[in-house]
Nucleic acid binder design. Structure first.
Length: 228
DNA sequence: CCAGACGTTGTT
DNA sequence: GTCTGG
DNA sequence: CCAGACGTTGTT
DNA sequence: GTCTGG
């Protein structure tokens, strides 16, 4: 699945990748966790916009905002059936910009976190869905979830699930509410392993309070020794 | 019909 | 064990 | 996702 | 809002 990710690329790089400006200078996050407010890209009046939303989708019909606590991921395989995601999948898709994400491998001992990204190191767009919620006393929450699918060969040894990464050439289609459902559905596939890399990192990332570049530093593989 | 859930992962 | 907070 | 709390009354 | 369970 996808429960933590990073977004630390420079505004110029993000603008180049996503074709949209407005990125915050100095925004560099190495440990984005559910419940936090982060930038996503969605369409507004058919134009791409950068919007700051809460991670943890609160469906429009929810009675309480806490309904979003468990809606941090949506299974690609069942998106179109689930009441919580169905309408958002049809009309309110978004891209969640990231330059990497973390997955935990369950071992006999403590869970081992891995950092995963593109070989190129470039940022990418994860498939997301967003919702607008209005609670009592005019409280408004705009939130999103990240679509997950079966892990590719690279991720399989670590975890069974991974976020859906949208190929850059398909960003516009994913965002377009008028796109053919069949075409949109075809984007819900595991991203090719060949274009990705992964490596173990410190368990410091486990604590959501930790947030620094050291979190994505490669950890030497267990059982090996670094010369010197 | 109404009431109650609406999610994921991992573990048992 | 389960829920909340980040 | 993981970490950390999980309770009440009354007083400052 | 919409689906499932009773």
């Amino acid at each position: 699945m996808c429960g933590r990710y990073t977004l630390a690329s420079a505004p110029a790089v993000l603008e180049q990748t996503f074709g949209i400006g407005g990125w915050l200078a100095g925004f560099a996050r190495y440990n984005i966790a559910p419940s936090q407010v982060v930038p996503v890209i969605r369409l507004s009046a058919e134009e791409p916009e950068l919007a700051w939303l809460v991670w943890g989708l609160v469906p429009h019909w929810a009675k309480e905002a806490k309904t979003g606590y468990s809606m941090i991921n949506a299974r690609a395989e069942t998106l179109e059936k689930k009441p919580a995601f169905r309408s958002a999948f049809r009309r309110q898709r978004c891209l969640v910009p990231a330059d990497g994400f973390y997955e935990w491998k369950v071992t006999a001992g403590p869970k081992q976190p891995y950092y995963v990204g593109l070989k190129t190191g470039e940022p990418f767009g994860m498939a997301g869905l967003w919702e607008h919620w209005e609670g009592p006393d005019q409280a408004v929450i705009e939130s999103f979830t990240i679509v997950v699918t079966q892990a590719n060969e690279l991720l399989c040894p670590v975890h069974e699930r991974m976020p859906v990464i949208v190929p850059a050439a398909d960003y516009a289609m994913w965002l377009d509410a008028k796109a053919e459902v069949q075409s949109v559905r075809s984007l819900l596939a595991p991203f090719p392993s060949e274009a990705m890399r992964r490596y173990p990192v410190s368990t410091r990332v486990n604590n959501p309070m930790a947030d620094d570049p050291g979190l994505i530093g490669e950890l030497s593989a267990p059982g090996t020794r670094t010369a010197g």
